[in-house]
């Protein structure tokens, strides 16, 4: 019983909310992009590749505006 109550409380505590399409204006700003500067990112990637002999694994597709 205690476990069920704890589980239900955890579910109630979840902060999941849907961002409506018209509220995505802040997310669509260039500064909100996961890779805000392509040049900086390319340099960082180059250094990382040189040091670690591995690359990639960063960023996601899309700009966050939910357009496409």
């Amino acid at each position: 019983m205690y476990k069920i109550i704890s589980l239900l409380s955890l579910l109630l505590l979840s902060a999941c909310t849907t961002v409506q399409p018209w509220d995505k204006d802040l997310l669509a700003k260039p500064s909100m992009a996961l890779v805000p500067s392509e040049i900086d990112n390319a340099l960082d990637e180059h250094i990382y590749f040189s040091k670690e002999a591995s690359m990639g694994g960063q960023g996601v597709g899309g700009g966050g505006c939910g357009c496409n």
Binding site: Q20, P21, W22, D23, K24, C67, N68
Partner: peptide
């Protein structure tokens, strides 16, 4: 206020 957008239940931009 997106009141009409809400009535139309838009899913993305543009709709």
């Amino acid at each position: 206020q997106a009141a009409v957008a809400e009535q139309y239940n838009i899913e993305g931009m543009p709709s």
